[in-house]
Design a protein around this nucleic acid. Sequence first.
DNA 1: AATGAATGAGGGTTCATTCAT
DNA 2: GATGAATGAACCCTCATTCAT
Lengths: 207, 207, 207, 207
Amino acid sequence: MPSDLRRERDRIRSERRRQAVLDAAARVFVRQGFHRTLISDIAAEAKVGQGTFYRHFPDKPAVFRAVFDRFAESLFAGFAGMSARLPRDAREYRDMSVAAIRELAKGLERNRELALMLLREAPTVDPALQERVDSLHDAFVDLARGYLDHAVAEGFARPCDTRLVAAAIVGLGVAMAHRWWIGRIPGASLDHMIEELVDLVFHGLSR
Amino acid sequence: MPSDLRRERDRIRSERRRQAVLDAAARVFVRQGFHRTLISDIAAEAKVGQGTFYRHFPDKPAVFRAVFDRFAESLFAGFAGMSARLPRDAREYRDMSVAAIRELAKGLERNRELALMLLREAPTVDPALQERVDSLHDAFVDLARGYLDHAVAEGFARPCDTRLVAAAIVGLGVAMAHRWWIGRIPGASLDHMIEELVDLVFHGLSR
Amino acid sequence: MPSDLRRERDRIRSERRRQAVLDAAARVFVRQGFHRTLISDIAAEAKVGQGTFYRHFPDKPAVFRAVFDRFAESLFAGFAGMSARLPRDAREYRDMSVAAIRELAKGLERNRELALMLLREAPTVDPALQERVDSLHDAFVDLARGYLDHAVAEGFARPCDTRLVAAAIVGLGVAMAHRWWIGRIPGASLDHMIEELVDLVFHGLSR
Amino acid sequence: MPSDLRRERDRIRSERRRQAVLDAAARVFVRQGFHRTLISDIAAEAKVGQGTFYRHFPDKPAVFRAVFDRFAESLFAGFAGMSARLPRDAREYRDMSVAAIRELAKGLERNRELALMLLREAPTVDPALQERVDSLHDAFVDLARGYLDHAVAEGFARPCDTRLVAAAIVGLGVAMAHRWWIGRIPGASLDHMIEELVDLVFHGLSR
DNA sequence: AATGAATGAGGGTTCATTCAT
DNA sequence: GATGAATGAACCCTCATTCAT
């Protein structure tokens, strides 16, 4: 049945188009921000007609949401492979944290402008987007809290309100990443910054 | 030629009007965000004609900037009276920090929605606004760093990269305030949160 | 009775004000044209408040009309003294024409920018103004025709459709004045131009 | 990627639309003048949306300029075929002039309202338009001067400042056309007027 | 009477969305 | 399905006119 073949080919081509528009949208959003971006800018960047944009996305917030979600997924995908082995003492715990954060930072470095843009713009796009940003944040807090609970249970860290501390750690991390990316942490290497921050926290949690 | 008296009375009345428009703008921005706010919304909220808006502000970004600046000034004004006495030991240092932060938090509580809005919207209004947010942040980092340097000099705190740590503390503070305000730190009192965070940092900086 | 005195003084002062606004309006119209001129421009130029403008003129077209009428009157006033003696031969006729036109030109030279502006702008202000420009033109045609009829009657000029020829002479005159003022008649003295044109016409009307 | 055929068809359709908007603009300008005409008037007259106007012209002065330029071109196009043969004596010269002017007048008769409007409004639209009107005038003066120089060289006309006289002739012609069109030359046929004027000038230039 | 702040209708322009080809 | 011209609602801003002081 050739029509099935044809249909499949069309589906693939359509999906490729959608990705192209999505990529273009991400680039333009990074360059101009959400509110200064016109549908025609995205279409032009993707080298398709404006009508084609509407075949793949119902409106501007929708394509922003798609950009955001794709980024969020890639972020978690980066974590999936990481949490392999649990540390056995405080020292190992600290070194693994440094390594993990370094890895995360390296991965983000490629998309830092995208990440910055999403952090900046998402809360003003839509209440829905605002919610998603907060949920993403929560997800990281939950992740951190899991590690922290383990550390407390194993006696690597002093007992504390782990939910609160996890939130603090994530908040600190996001804030510092932000300021690092916008160049407001001058005269320090990324590695130095990471070590200093991890030390601050580990020291702060030591028994 | 109008009398000086008349001119002065007009100036005062005009300033009152300007404040009324500014207040109205702040309320509408909080309610709807910058981008969903129309000039006509602001004028209606202030109960003046649209033309009156333009007598006092050249455009929407300008009134936003004015709202932002007024808030930033009130923020610093709140600090002016605080930094009276320097602490003489780590314990006093810790207690004073808790007290100061509590005070700050209480002051912000009244304007929390405004603060949230500014934090959220400012970076998408204007490159100039983005810069101002970052500078405000920097100002707090400098402030924190001053205290920190003193603490290290006096031996209350271990030596460290005070610039980095100050940035971390401010970042952590802003992030937690943010999450507290949006209700993502459930089941904890403000006082508990402040103490827990101050302890984390003080512990992290103890010798 | 002091109130009569007072009333008279007020009337004089009001009239002075009116003239000041009128002068200011003329200057601004010359500088910017009718359509680019705001009431506030006129008030500022006259150094009075906007409200004062409306005490003396109901709106913008009205003040333009007043500027126009004042100019038209001064134009005719200039002629009043001129038409003293009628010429007795063609030669005298020609010399008197040159002298009269020279006089007229000299008088206009002081107001040439005003004249140009009125010529340019009046037809687009108002149908009423358009009509007034045409009537002014007609008045000059009638004047010219009177002279012409006399010249034909006396045998200085060949018989012709004097209405048509008078219109042609005035049209030619206005057109040349216009082009002279805007600098499109380069490399000729005013006197040379006048003589050349008068000669053309007198030659054209000679028997 | 659209086919060449499609692109060509679109181009033609777009050009047709542009002409429709241009025609509509000319009609509305004639009816209401430049300054009383709204973009929405033009769009309504052309039976298109306001947005469509902006697809073809950036603003109101631009469409006026286009109307003006199209008229100016058609004016010159009318002349192209005319200046075929040069006259061999004064009589022929006179008759050819009458014929040419009659032809020109007939051609203009169809567009007399447009011509009047352009003459009236152009100088108040834009400094650029003012310049264009003057240049158009100059072009006619140059044309007339060419004929005049030839006439003098051949001895049909007496020596004179041909530039000045050419300017005078064109000025006279434009002024009379204007007054003819607005009905201020009552009781004379067009032909009579033309002959009378040509005679005046020819007589004026005869040896 | 003079002032100039206040007003809001008016009009230019943009741009998300539709739709004929 | 793809295109981009067409649309017109939406919104910003101006400025003639009014009016409280």
